[in-house]
Design a protein around this nucleic acid. Sequence first.
DNA 1: GATGAATGAGCTTTCATTCAT
DNA 2: AATGAATGAAAGCTCATTCAT
Lengths: 216, 216, 216, 216
Amino acid sequence: MGAVKTKRMPRAVREQQMLDAAVRIFGQRGYMAASMDEIAELAGVSKPLVYLYLNSKEDLFTACIRREAGALTEAVRAGVRAGLPADRQLWDGLQAFFAHTAEHPDGWSVLHLQARTHGENFAAEVTAMREEIVAFVTQLIAVAAREAHRDPDLPEREVAGLAEALVGAAESLAAWANATPGVTARQAAATLMNFAWAGLGNLMKGSPWTPPAGEV
Amino acid sequence: MGAVKTKRMPRAVREQQMLDAAVRIFGQRGYMAASMDEIAELAGVSKPLVYLYLNSKEDLFTACIRREAGALTEAVRAGVRAGLPADRQLWDGLQAFFAHTAEHPDGWSVLHLQARTHGENFAAEVTAMREEIVAFVTQLIAVAAREAHRDPDLPEREVAGLAEALVGAAESLAAWANATPGVTARQAAATLMNFAWAGLGNLMKGSPWTPPAGEV
Amino acid sequence: MGAVKTKRMPRAVREQQMLDAAVRIFGQRGYMAASMDEIAELAGVSKPLVYLYLNSKEDLFTACIRREAGALTEAVRAGVRAGLPADRQLWDGLQAFFAHTAEHPDGWSVLHLQARTHGENFAAEVTAMREEIVAFVTQLIAVAAREAHRDPDLPEREVAGLAEALVGAAESLAAWANATPGVTARQAAATLMNFAWAGLGNLMKGSPWTPPAGEV
Amino acid sequence: MGAVKTKRMPRAVREQQMLDAAVRIFGQRGYMAASMDEIAELAGVSKPLVYLYLNSKEDLFTACIRREAGALTEAVRAGVRAGLPADRQLWDGLQAFFAHTAEHPDGWSVLHLQARTHGENFAAEVTAMREEIVAFVTQLIAVAAREAHRDPDLPEREVAGLAEALVGAAESLAAWANATPGVTARQAAATLMNFAWAGLGNLMKGSPWTPPAGEV
DNA sequence: GATGAATGAGCTTTCATTCAT
DNA sequence: AATGAATGAAAGCTCATTCAT
């Protein structure tokens, strides 16, 4: 027959199907425009089952945010190896970040656009993840400063601002790379590394940052 | 007295009141969660009048976007004087940008968050404005390269990516500055200039970009 | 310049303009779907003026019905000359009726369709006119019976039913003639005369009614 | 007990209840004046259920038209037996028609008044049914002509006009019979048969059409 | 004689959510 | 484990109607 309506699956599996559907719908329509009807239909289940498992639209959306946030941080974490020089760690992390967002546009839409536009509660979920990433970058900058024997230390707030700017630039480039055909994750990462590490000033003088040799 | 229900005003005035109210509600609630009832009430008029003048929720939102986009670009334009060195122009422009977004948080929310999350038509309105700004920055980078006698020229796509990153970082810092008490527009602009002009690498070596002397 | 907005005209003229517009809109859109806005615009005046002169939507519609009913009965009356034989009077009246309805489709729509579909009050207005016409036809039938020396008289209710059927057939043919290209008022009248005067039975036997000679 | 709020019934049943209510309200108030609220209330359900099952006001109205049109043609069809003489078939059909319209005044109002006054789409639904009936009558007239050995044949357009007139007269008499106390379906049918078959001319001469003998 | 400004009331439609099985 | 049947509440939008000039 073909697309038989598969029935009676364990709860964990069903839940993932529902989240898959929800992320897709939320990512494409937006939180408010998404209807529980559509999500249930895409998930291939009845609406009451969605409510039985996920409780409410709010809870469902929160679950989506959490899952996608977890997946993204996990992808970045997996791309970075501690112990390497700071710029190498940043380079690896950025590549992982751009690759993941390119592969999961709906998830990225949920995190970057939808969650931030529909109330403090949802925004807070993303903020938590974002702060984790900002903290990682902050610490990388501090390490780099130490590696460069910078003295005195950069003021803390200054570092925070720089990390914020770096992360913001990355988020923005993710959208740009997704929207501009022919821009790969690697290119996006390289552009950002140049911008961040060498700075426009150095670029002008012809001394850009260069990707580490011997990479895949 | 105070908020007396003022009556019978010319259309142009009423329209501005409605846009004021709409920007506030849209900025705080989001496009979909905003109700025409609430907007009308905040504007101090009945709903039919809103429809009579602004036509529909979509048209009202578009009108908000256009007005706020115009105000923002105008503010930046007014902050920059052509003829000055590129870094000075960027510095002035960033200060104007951060000052304006700090003073009009709802307008900024409409442009940066709401308009991009609710359909291509709205997003296109913002994209138009954003491209204007990106073009301005792109040209500044090109001028800077010429001033620095960079040879050969930076590839075009590379410049586009850099401009994109710079603008993205600025947008991100605007939100950060608004949310972090004690961060002024000037400080946000300085952080970003450092990041962009000197680059993290130079910062590490202790040679940051410095604001031009003799400023207000 | 061209369509200058003519201003300040005597009340009677303005009222006719309004009724013209109203008949057109009511006839095409229907009573409920017609909006006072549209009528005022088509009449070239502001809405308050319509209310000043015609009072309310209901009154306006009633005024339309009365005017169009008057025009129709007047047209039929003008087509008939008393003193002629009954069939000649009927033939003349039918021609006048079909000619008038063909020339005033919106007015006919108001009378035949709209007025009967929107409440007893409006329907009653039309019924008054219709009864006048039915009475005229009833009397023609009675005259014809006398001319034919029919004995005994047809029962009254029977005559009423026949008149009703004749008028109903005429109304129906009016719509049919308007909708069927190439059918003239004269042809419609001839078809109905055949049907009514000769009857299908006679038609079958090859003895139809024939239009009176020496006509225009 | 009585009108207990019966709950939880199968969809098909509920749909019929909704159509019953809708025909009643549409028939009495008219399409536009009918409110979905009122229909839902009369059907004993909530408004969302009406929309869930019938989709929209337009679709609901169309469903009403279709159901009532089907019921009417079915009633007429059931009243007529092929193989009998043409006048007998017409006589039977008319009786069935007048009986059905008398028993379902709201349905008849929907078909005859409302559907024709509110847009081409609705009118087209009725026109389809009406054409079926006109075609039936047209063919009866043709058969009658053959039975009477009429030579030459009546021109086609003439027959069409006659059928149109006959049907129009029937429609008109239906309203008249409903509104005139004491007029039965049988009497209405007899009046129309006289009018149509004998013609007024023959009636005058005292040779009316007579109902077939030995009828129920 | 004529109008720009304004509104109360009501309409169709949709949605998140629950009940009974 | 799963669903067909059902709804309270609210949203966007329109309309006949009036006020103040």
